[in-house]
């Protein structure tokens, strides 16, 4: 290789030296390269990152409730919650409905052919809305009635039962279905026009509730409103406004769930910034049951932990006679109970 034998040693040393240098240099370079992902910080300018963290904190002065207990549902995919007049708790999920006593002990269970999406419990019977039809059960689990399939585009997400009439919220067709006591379809209403604002339902969160005032209360998430209708489908009033701030409904389509306390005040539940809040009967903001920081630690994690939450991650809410708020946590698969703070 070389024509000078003296070069052997020198090239040997050179080879070894340069080789070692290169090896250590290479290894140092390899381990030095820090992973952007590891630091957990985006290298982007803040104007390229979406940030609503300033809205994710609740003013303690506005917090009216505290979490007191939770009940495991035993469902893989809990979906809906309702409380009967005697504080019996009904939870729908997977392919069934479970009935718990007020202390959280499992009483009975109903098996369904499909997934329950909404529940209404009157004390004498349970109405279960499945995707395209309604099933009515007695409290002991015996099936009383079952409606016809309500159409291909129908996607039921809410049910209310007065005993004489049943109202269904059809998110697929963006309308309310009025049925008789046995689930026979009487009428559909709520379309845009004739004084009706029309329902805007971008995602399947659309609910109905019968108030003691005789009005049918409906959430209109795309308009960020809670609206009242007469039983024959006439729009009466609506309240609510979009805002990331705590007084309004955040995001593009909220509230996703709502209920009323025995005193007539509204309990609303939002997705995106998960928060459960209290509004008075006229729609004035009163306070917070639980803010985003109380409900979910990490929204992405929670969404993935919930098999059915690729669109929206919201807590269905119900109220018992003591005014406690029961929120169904689809990630933890539990019912979380919030009781009013004692002043």
């Amino acid at each position: 290789m070389n024509n000078d034998s003296k070069l052997n040693r020198r090239s040997f040393l050179g080879a070894a030296g340069a080789g070692l240098l290169a090896l250590t240099g290479g290894l140092a370079g390899c381990t030095k390269r820090t992973d952007n992902a590891k630091t957990g910080k985006s290298p982007l300018d803040p104007r390229f990152t979406y940030d609503v963290s300033q809205f994710a904190h609740t003013d303690p002065a506005q917090l009216l409730y505290q979490e007191t207990a939770s009940i495991p549902t035993g469902f893989e995919d809990p979906k809906c919650i309702a409380v009967g007049p005697n504080n019996t708790l009904f939870i729908g999920g997977d392919r069934g409905v479970k009935c718990f006593d007020p202390n959280g002990r499992l009483q009975s269970a109903i098996t369904l052919a499909d997934k329950p999406i909404a529940l209404a419990a009157t004390g004498t019977r349970i109405c279960v809305a499945l995707k395209d039809h309604l099933e009515i059960f007695a409290e002991n689990g015996r099936q009383l009635a079952r409606s016809e399939p309500l159409g291909a585009k129908t996607y039921l997400t809410g049910v209310a039962d007065s005993g004489q009439a049943i109202f269904l919220a059809d998110a697929g067709r963006r309308e309310i279905i009025h049925c008789d006591a046995n689930g026979k379809l009487l009428n559909r209403f709520g379309h845009h026009g004739d004084g009706n604002p029309g329902f805007v339902v971008p995602s399947p969160y659309f609910h109905v509730l019968l108030g003691d005032d005789g009005l049918l209360w409906v959430n209109n998430p795309g308009r960020h409103q809670i609206e009242a209708y007469t039983a024959d489908g006439r729009f009466e009033l609506g309240w609510g406004a979009p805002s990331m701030a705590v007084e309004g409904f955040c995001g593009c389509c909220n509230p996703v769930y709502f209920t009323r306390r025995p005193d007539g005040k509204f309990v609303t539940s939002e997705k995106g910034l998960n928060r459960i809040k209290i509004y008075d009967a006229k729609g004035n903001f009163e306070g917070v049951v639980a803010g985003p920081e109380h409900l979910v630690k990490d929204l992405d994690l929670a969404k993935k932990a919930c098999a059915n939450c690729q669109i929206g991650f919201g807590f269905d809410v119900a109220c018992d006679s003591a005014g406690r708020v029961l929120a169904l946590d689809p990630a933890a698969k539990t019912v979380r109970i919030f009781a009013p703070k004692i002043a």
Binding site: L44, T49, Y50, V52, P202, C252, G272, G312
Partner: peptide, 17 residues
Amino acid sequence: CVGCAKCVKGCTMFGNG
């Protein structure tokens, strides 16, 4: 579009993604 995913985050967080 620079692919920063800001809108994706906003849409996925509140909307349908």
